[in-house]
Amino acid sequence: MTHGTARNIFIFGSLLMLGILVWLSIDSVKAIEKNTPPVTSKVEAGLKVWQKYNCIDCHTLIGNGAYFAPDLTKSYSKRGDAFLRAFISNPPKPMPNFQMSDEELDDLIDFLRWVDGVQTNGWPPKPLIQK
């Protein structure tokens, strides 16, 4: 293979792949809007709370984050509103107590409810051995 051929493969191959990625991304973003529950202003505010307290640098959400604390994707359906509220207001060690306002707590729980509704292609898989 000549130098020029390799360079052309690099240039045109990369552009082709980038083109496919852009095309799939436009399609994916549309699909995500269908695969996720509607984003209300409270959900949006809840995402801001999630970000403000840097939750992702301990927890994971849809498996992405810091692996130091549990994944919270299905926490809403698993634990329920009241449990989450009590847990976050008075967390066991080593989780810090963030002293959130009632409004922040409401929004955060609404956000976790929203995440619970994301269509995740079956992730996380159910444990093979049930307790």
Binding site: I9, M17, S28
Partner: peptide, 28 residues
């Protein structure tokens, strides 16, 4: 050039391994 071409040819769409479970379509 061949090396970096292969990096892009595999790596650009290799991004799909992050799109299995986040609300994205199954084709990923």
């Amino acid at each position: 050039y061949l090396e970096v071409a292969l990096v892009f040819l595999t790596g650009i769409l290799g991004i799909g391994h992050h799109y299995y479970w986040i609300g994205t379509p199954k084709y990923w």
